[in-house]
């Protein structure tokens, strides 16, 4: 997909804030695929990912005023919206599906394992990069980034000291950066 940037990020943001429809079309054409990939890595279901993508663009449209250029790039902001929307969807889904008897802990045990092993998902995006990490690091990034658990929750789930969880996640992230370069 050849992306030719016709707007600077500044221009794009101010056009989006002015509710410029062309700017939104441009945004979609240039970023929808990248965001869709992120959504897919988390929800792993194409139907669900379609819904989430819609929701993500609605959120971008509604919350563009809240985007603070000083705190990071537009794409990072959108990526985090996509990640949060995906995790929220996943959680509400898994909650609805497992209302009968499971605790949260069981959801964690059942959901991610099947998802990770689903063919195709781990060959895209960050997941592909994660493949190169050690098993224990991969698990932690899986829980923290793709499942959205807090460090405290992870410490409880993995029965590890909080400090260990933090250190391992930080180390995994440092390696991730090296792998992305």
């Amino acid at each position: 997909m050849g992306i030719t940037l016709t707007y600077t990020e500044q221009e794009l943001v101010s056009l989006l804030r002015n509710r410029d429809n062309k700017a939104f079309a441009y945004l979609y054409d240039n970023y929808a695929s990248a965001l869709y990939s992120i959504i897919l890595q988390i929800v792993s279901d194409a139907e669900l990912a379609n819904d989430v993508l819609q929701e993500v663009f609605v959120n971008i449209w509604r919350r563009i005023e809240q985007y603070d250029t000083g705190k990071g790039r537009l794409f990072t902001w959108m990526m985090n919206i996509a990640r949060n929307a995906s995790i929220d969807t996943l959680r509400s889904r898994s909650y609805q599906n497992s209302r009968k008897n499971q605790s949260i802990q069981e959801n964690v045990d059942t959901l991610p394992v099947t998802d990770i092993n689903q063919p195709g998902i781990d060959t895209i995006g960050l997941r592909k990069v994660l493949e190169q990490l050690r098993e224990e690091q991969r698990t932690l990034i899986e829980l923290a980034y793709f499942k959205g658990y807090t460090h405290e929750e992870i410490a409880a789930l993995e029965q590890l000291p909080l400090g260990t969880v933090k250190t391992r996640i930080r180390n995994a992230l440092i390696q991730l950066r090296a792998l992305l370069k």
């Binding site: 509710r19 929808a32 990248a34 990939s37 993508l53 819609q54």
Partner: peptide, 25 residues
Amino acid sequence: SLEQHALAGAVAPPAHLRETILQQF
């Protein structure tokens, strides 16, 4: 680098979504 990586690993959503989404705006 994250952005470039994401753009490089992009997966195109179904074509019909584009209209549905942009129509809302």
